[in-house]
Design a protein around this nucleic acid. Sequence first.
DNA 1: TGAATGATTTACT
DNA 2: GTAAATCATTCAA
Length: 198
Amino acid sequence: MATLLPRAFYARPSPVVAQECLGKILVLETKDGPLSGRIVETEAYLGIPDKAAHSYGGRRTHRNEVMYGPPGHAYVYLVYGLHDHLNLVTSAPGDPCAVLVRAVEPLSGEGRMRQRRPVVTLTALTSGPGKLCRAFGIDRGYNGHDLCCSPLFLVDGPAPARVVRTPRIGVANAGAWARRRLRFLDPESRFVSRLRTG
DNA sequence: TGAATGATTTACT
DNA sequence: GTAAATCATTCAA
């Protein structure tokens, strides 16, 4: 039963939402049909006290304005000049928290994803935050989109058998925050961006 | 108005 | 394993 996740799902602390997002389905409806994928990897960003977050220290800028708004909205931004990242705004208005979607398993529309992203292996299609955005065609035009409405939203799905927590990626300059286990992933999926070096 | 930097990916050695 | 690509946003003057 694919029920659309209500706003209440997002109106909780980031780590809770990040963990419960595993197994849920990300859906993007397009004129050519839906693209969907099962979320297998996320990261939690805790807002004001989190040195690794854009909203660290209560900074409120044009870019992260969406995180200060109500939960259940998409926060999409460009990093390194060429990669888009998809975040889910969590918590409550005024509390700039978010969950970064790092990897999904393609469920439908895989053919169109491959067209957007010429790639050699299937797992390379969506196994990374920038990769999945390119595969889905998600760009900054979706920034601020309400995830309770079409065309971009999440639906319920089975939780993974086990959940593994690891330190977050790409935030080595965040001091003690870099060591917090705020990355959640399904160890049984081969689509996680980096499970282990082994 | 100008300069520095980044929640990454890809290619090449 | 190391390095380059590439530009919107941010901070300083």
